[in-house]
């Protein structure tokens, strides 16, 4: 089953939790880092890279010898990625969504599509034998969802019962690309007004998508806090609360993970995955 680890607000501890979950469930889980704009899981896992693969999008190119400057492609493009300047057609790669519409509509067959690299997948085996697959968006490209989708389609090194998906922050199209078709979502948040505000947005998105979820609260100062109040009122489950602890932050700053500070959480982190099963 696929379990996404997501959050509205950034920096609430998604990556920390994803890495700790992989450590605690090494023999039965793999981890996809789908936070492709800023993939960070690899920094906290000793691993050996096994292979790389480019993620490409088809981007149009105009053959000036065939182009009659009719402007049909400009009209067809919904993303303002094509313009006519003087007597040539210009294509702005970074705005192109690779829909293929221009090549299809060109009456003169003057547009052909060519693959352009927009990202990379790298597959690793961690020291604990589990698989880590990292998706990375090329800097300067905007098509993060395409890299996320490619990461999710990659074949696993070996079949394991749980695929964990570290998702990007926010609630926009990148978040949707990462969490859609998951069987369960962990929403990681922190007990602050920002954490609550962004949690509500993420919950709204998941309810729209009809995905089951549980909340994990990080950096709590007390057992009752503004997240527990909200969750209780709405009837949403909270499965884990992690205390605010400078020691955890310092361990993270050294590249360590949650289980280094709190080894007793291993059992809880194993149960978290079991509880996702319907």
């Amino acid at each position: 089953m696929k379990i996404a680890i997501a959050s509205g607000k950034g920096g609430t501890g998604k990556t920390s939790l994803a890495v700790a979950l992989l450590h605690a469930n090494a023999e039965r889980a793999r981890l996809l880092d789908c936070d492709v704009e800023e993939p960070n899981c690899h920094l906290f896992l000793s691993h050996t890279v096994i292979g790389h693969k480019a993620v490409e999008l088809l981007i149009p190119q105009v053959n000036p010898n065939l182009c009659k400057l009719c402007g049909k492609c400009v009209e067809a493009c919904q993303f303002n990625a094509i313009a006519i300047a003087g007597n040539q057609v210009m294509i702005f790669n970074e705005l192109c969504h690779s829909c293929g519409g221009c090549a299809r509509i060109c009456p003169h067959g003057a547009i052909q599509e060519f693959p352009v690299k927009i990202g990379e997948l790298s597959q690793s085996r961690c020291k604990n034998e589990a698989e880590l697959l990292t998706g990375t968006l090329e800097i300067g490209h905007a098509s993060a969802p395409a890299v996320i989708k490619a990461a999710k389609k990659a074949l696993p090194l070996q079949d394991v019962p749980f695929t964990l998906i570290d998702s990007p922050p926010g609630t926009a199209c990148t978040f949707v690309a990462a969490v859609e078709d998951s069987d369960f979502v962990f929403l990681v948040t922190e007990a602050t007004p920002f954490g609550l505000n962004d949690l509500k947005l993420a919950v709204e998105a998941l309810l729209n998508m009809e995905l089951p979820f549980a909340i994990i609260v990080n950096r709590i100062q007390s057992e009752t806090n503004l997240i527990t109040d909200y969750a209780n009122q709405q009837g949403f489950p909270i499965w884990l609360q992690i205390p605010e602890d400078r020691h955890i932050a310092e361990t993270y700053a050294r590249g360590g993970n949650l289980l280094d500070v709190k080894p007793e959480l291993k059992k809880v982190l194993r149960e978290l995955l079991d509880r996702c099963q319907p």
Binding site: E37, L137, I139, H141, A144, P169, G170, T174
Partner: peptide, 10 residues
């Protein structure tokens, strides 16, 4: 601004 390096950041 937003986090990341993708479309909304650009």
């Amino acid at each position: 601004g937003p986090p990341g390096i993708g479309c909304p950041v650009i």
